[in-house]
Every structure is written in C-alpha cells, then in structure tokens.
Amino acid sequence: MTTATALGYGPQDRLLIVNADDFGLCHSTNLGIERLLVDGIVSSATLMMPCGWAREAAQWSARHPHLDVGVHFTFTSEWDAMKWGPVYRGGSTLSLVTAEGYFQRDVKRFERQADSSEVRCELTAQVEMALALGVNVTHADNHMGSLYGLQLGRHFLKEVFEVCAQYGLPFRLPRYLLLESGQVAPPELAKQAGEMAELADSMGVVVLDYLLGLPFRAASGETYDEMKGQMIAILGNLHPGVSEIILHPSLVTDELNAFHGAPARRGMEMELFRDPDIRRKIQSEGIIPVRWRDLRDLQRRS
C-alpha cells in the first residue's frame, strides 16, 4: 500500500506536494515564500525555527492558517556570515553546538557528537515554539537531512517519530527511495528506507511515498532553462503514490547575497512552478496536487 491509496486514491494515481524549504531563513526568503504560498504556486513551506527571521515567518503563518506551514527541524548552521543555534532553554544542548554556541556547520559533525536526548528536547522545543507563535503546524521535515544518518549511519528518526506522533504531524521520509536520476535506489538502500518507513508506521506517523528535488549542488554556470528541463523530467517520471518536490526559493537581494553561496539559484527556484511550461507539464501528466494537511488529517484520523 502507498500513502496515496491510504488517502483514497487509485493505485496508479500520481499525487504531488511542492514544498518551499527554509522559511524564516532571512527576510528576503520570507517575502519570496509568502508570495508563492498566497499565489498557490507551492503547496506548503517549512519553518527554520532557530533562525533570526523565523518569528516574522511564524507570525505571518499564524495570520494565514489556511496555508500549509510545517517545521523544518534544524540542527545545522551552514553559512559563515549568518549563524543560529538551539531554541531549547530547559537544559543542556552542549552536544548540539560548537564552542561558539551555534549548531555544527555540517551533518557529519552533528551525527558524531549529538546526544539523542538533547536532540529530542530540541525537536520538541522547535515544534512548541511554532505553536506558541500561532502556527497551524501541518507537518515536519529536516534541514540538510541531518536526522537521517546519511553521513555516518547514525540517525535520530526514532526521536523524530516520537515527537511527530506526540503532535500528530506527518514527516518527510520516503517509503521508496529514489536516486537523483529518478531511478529506484539499490536494494540495500531501498531496504533501509523501507525499514524506516515501517518504524514510522508502527509509531503512527504518516510518511511520503517518494521524495524528489533538483540536484543539491548546481553545475557550474547552470542556467534557468537547464534547471527547468531537469524539473520537467522529474515531473514526467513521477511514480504512482505521493511525491514531494523540494524547492529553496527566495527573492535575490543584497541581504541574500551577503551570506548565501548560490543566491541566483534560489532566485531561479522562485520562478520554476510559475513557469507556464511547468504548469502545462503537471496538467498534461494528470498529476494530482495534494497538501500536507491531507496527510495530517489521515494521521490524526488513524
């Protein structure tokens, strides 16, 4: 069974969620994502609660409870010129931070040092902070994949599922793992993904069928047309089930240019799902748009 069939769709139906990550990262990103949400260009967004502009994004989300906004569980701080750290204040977070008190720059250091009990406290604090600011939290996912054990094999998904079960939130985890090419992953990796999905099932947390996105690192000199071609290919190769496509959109401003390593790419991602060619592709393929709150409703009914 797929998550799509659990939602009541047919076994060959292809359902799609388009999520804008990194809401709250900075003012420019907030303005861009807000515009995409209001215009219905993206299905949802996820908030980085530790970031300096998270409060602005959360307060805006509280004023727009009909739009889907989740929590982007954040445990890394990757840029040199702008940093953030834990929001949990009820005890130690020493295993999560550098000597300066910020989150680790990369996932490998986080996996190596993080204490699972401190991770769970921080997960809870990030959800509680969003709720306290009035966000109608629809789901959760993870910044930079830090909780999946992708670098050293040390994942924190049990803690994630405990928190998601407690708050009735579905989580970004693919039941069926695909490579960046869209092909099914090798058996060993596919088996690991299936086992994690089974753990989510056993704890009552609804997950995706597939997770997709553009390559994490852009090719040198990448153009908008090249990016659009990649996205059209992704849409043309969707598998039956619920797929999520991840975007990282933002307005490109002096603020973004001041700290971000690839600001132009974020500007191009702002335009992708506005593009008439992309919209025609979704329609011609018969792809059905769904929302994270549909998955949340399924989880809470169950």
Rank of each mutant, 00 (worst) to 15 (best):
R266V: 02
L179K: 15
V252S: 02
S43H: 08
W53Y: 13
M82W: 01
D201Q: 02
R120G: 02
H72S: 10
K228S: 07
S284D: 14
P186T: 00
Q299A: 12
Q151D: 14
R265T: 01
D80P: 07
M1T: 14
N257Y: 11
E180W: 13
V135G: 00
V205W: 00
M270N: 03
S28L: 01
A130V: 11
L15H: 02
S92C: 07
D275N: 07
L131T: 05
G229H: 08
S284V: 05
A233S: 15
H248W: 02
K281E: 13
G10C: 10
Y102Q: 03
V42N: 07
A45P: 10
V252Y: 00
L16T: 07
E222Y: 07
C51V: 06
N136H: 12
K191L: 15
V205S: 00
I246G: 01
H139A: 11
S61K: 03
Q113P: 04
A125P: 11
V206G: 01
G229S: 14
V127P: 04
G145E: 07
D115R: 06
Q230P: 03
E255A: 04
E244W: 01
A20T: 09
G8W: 04
L247A: 09
V206M: 05
M231D: 01
A57N: 00
W84C: 05
L36K: 02
V206Y: 03
A219D: 12
Y9R: 08
R217I: 11
V69G: 01
T76N: 07
S95E: 11
I278Y: 05
A200W: 10
D39H: 12
P276Q: 05
V107C: 10
L150S: 14
